[in-house]
């Protein structure tokens, strides 16, 4: 079984990011890292294929960035397809999905596509389903457990109340909830091997997508304004005059937590 995992390379959340004042989007010129929320899909894919298949990464990133891909390759993925093109700057979620879907077509034979439910920098949360629609494949969201039996994928799909057991025919696109598996550390051997694993770098033209339909030009959305989040209000300080406990009880019962 072969699995394609869509991964995003994002600015390191540990370094405070900055917005480009002109485009009002996140600056992505520095080194990018593997989005942590994608490491769960990579781990799940590696567990599912075991020794009998390959995991291929598919990613779209500026400046031919591969640092994040190398991390997932070191974990055990076999190869990667990276789409990098200046014309992609400003792409919205749907363009991203079209590009990733086209790149998945270049990833060789596959049985299953995994993705995170949403990225940690953009948070649109719609790309996996859009990919499924573009590819004409069934889609299952919010997987907390995935197993494959013959031509069927069985998914425990997280809900507010618990989870639903869902089955669907392969190939399919499944989005994986963060935290449901423990991503492995890259082994020493894996790190050494990652450097020589193939990363197929493609431009828009290689995917047959017109530049006019991508990036700012093709975006169906526009960021019109960026506003600072409201300051958190100061808390209320209660002096203990012997009756403070009653006030705390009132406060908590107003919140309906007791």
């Amino acid at each position: 079984m072969n699995i394609v995992v869509c991964v995003k390379q994002i600015p390191d959340p540990a370094d405070p990011g900055a917005l480009d004042p002109e485009s009002k989007t996140l600056k992505r010129d520095g080194k990018l890292i593997l989005d942590e929320s994608d490491s769960y899909g990579v781990e799940m894919a590696l567990q599912l294929v075991g020794d009998s298949g390959e995991v291929t990464l598919v990613s779209m990133a500026p400046n031919g960035e591969v640092s994040g891909l190398r991390t997932a390759l070191a974990m055990g993925a076999a190869k990667a397809v990276l789409v990098s093109d200046d014309a992609l700057k400003g792409s919205d979620a749907l363009t991203t999905a079209k590009v990733l879907a086209a790149a998945i077509g270049k990833a060789g034979e596959y049985d299953l596509v995994l993705a995170a439910t949403e990225s940690s920098d953009g948070y649109t949360g719609v790309v996996p389903e859009q990919i499924a629609a573009v590819l004409g494949l069934p889609s299952v969201t919010f997987a907390k457990a995935v197993s494959v039996d013959g031509g069927t994928v069985k998914v425990d799909r997280q809900t507010e109340a618990g989870y639903d057991e869902v089955t669907c025919p392969l190939p399919a696109v499944v989005s994986v909830t963060a935290g449901v598996v423990e991503p492995r550390y890259p082994s020493f051997k894996g790190i050494m091997a990652a450097k020589s694993k193939p990363v197929d770098q493609l431009a828009l033209a290689d995917l047959g997508i017109e530049a006019a339909n991508a990036g700012w030009a093709g975006a169906g959305q526009e960021i019109v304004e960026v506003a600072a989040a409201a300051q958190r209000e100061a808390g209320e300080i209660i002096e203990d005059d012997g009756e403070a406990h009653a006030k705390i009880v009132d406060f908590l019962s107003n919140l309906k937590v007791i």
Partner: peptide, 15 residues
């Protein structure tokens, strides 16, 4: 190198 930095990060996560 990039590999060294990856190893460094993995070690930091483990620690």
């Amino acid at each position: 190198s990039d590999e060294h930095l990856m190893l460094q990060q993995a070690m930091r996560d483990f620690v």
